[in-house]
């Protein structure tokens, strides 16, 4: 960590960020009147987050065996897309990455 703060400070900071947006609408009425465009942006944020949460990290983390992570997430994508769920795709992805790393 660049800042050398205790982990608990980061945890409480994220808790504050989460709690503040959760509690605000229970007390502030203006949120019922936000422009539709702003509303659409906010509802799209979690989907927009998925891209940068995976790339380029999944390639950089396994460098020089950059293909290992890609093989892993490729497997989890196929299973999650066809069968749904989360724990089975994740376990398969760990197995595929493991095989790619030791080969």
């Amino acid at each position: 960590m660049k800042e050398n703060l205790p982990i608990v400070v980061y945890i409480l900071a994220t808790a504050l960020a989460t709690f503040s947006v959760r509690v605000l609408p229970y007390y502030a009425k203006f949120l019922n009147k936000l422009p539709p465009f702003v509303g659409r942006c906010m509802r799209l944020l979690p989907i927009a987050a998925l891209g940068p949460l995976v790339f380029p990290g999944v390639i950089l983390d396994f460098s020089p065996q950059w293909y290992a992570g890609l093989a892993g997430i490729g497997a989890s994508f196929l299973i999650a897309y066809t069968k749904g769920g989360m724990i089975f795709p994740i376990l398969t992805s760990i197995l595929v990455t493991y095989i790619a790393l030791v080969l």
Binding site: L50, F62, A68, S76, S93, Y98, L101
Partner: peptide
């Protein structure tokens, strides 16, 4: 310890699974 290295993919697999479900 070998498996722990491969576990590094967990987070990415989790996001890709979420993505696959959303896409579907």
């Amino acid at each position: 310890s070998e498996l722990q290295m491969a576990v590094g993919v967990t987070l990415y697999a989790m996001f890709i699974s979420l993505f696959a479900q959303e896409l579907r």
